[in-house]
């Protein structure tokens, strides 16, 4: 998947997550801020990495502000952000 521009998806309401995708010309970086970082920070990171791999996305900066979203929501928001960035 080729990303062309910066894009955002999601909201900062409870049980949601806001994800920003910024294509850049260097190694990928993922920043996670989460209400449940201690309990789930690692799992959120793993999930994001696996979706990036699945979609063949590299050289991107991902900023995540999580308000206790379940995996399906994180996954949907990231896919939306990637979809928008690829437009």
């Amino acid at each position: 998947m080729k990303l062309n521009k910066r894009a955002i998806a999601g909201t900062m309401t409870s049980s949601d997550v806001m994800i920003e995708v910024i294509p850049w010309g260097k190694t990928s970086e993922i920043n996670i801020k989460s209400d449940v970082e201690k309990q789930y920070g690692d799992q959120i990171l793993d999930l994001i990495n696996s979706i990036l791999r699945e979609n063949d996305v590299d050289n991107v900066c991902i900023n995540v502000v999580d308000k206790g979203a379940l995996d399906f929501t994180i996954s949907a928001r990231l896919k939306t952000a990637l979809f928008r960035a690829a437009k």
Binding site: A9, G10, F72, T73, S75, A76, R77, K79, T80, F83
Partner: peptide
């Protein structure tokens, strides 16, 4: 985003 969310 609704489409992706419902699908997931």
């Amino acid at each position: 985003s609704a489409r992706f969310l419902v699908s997931e």
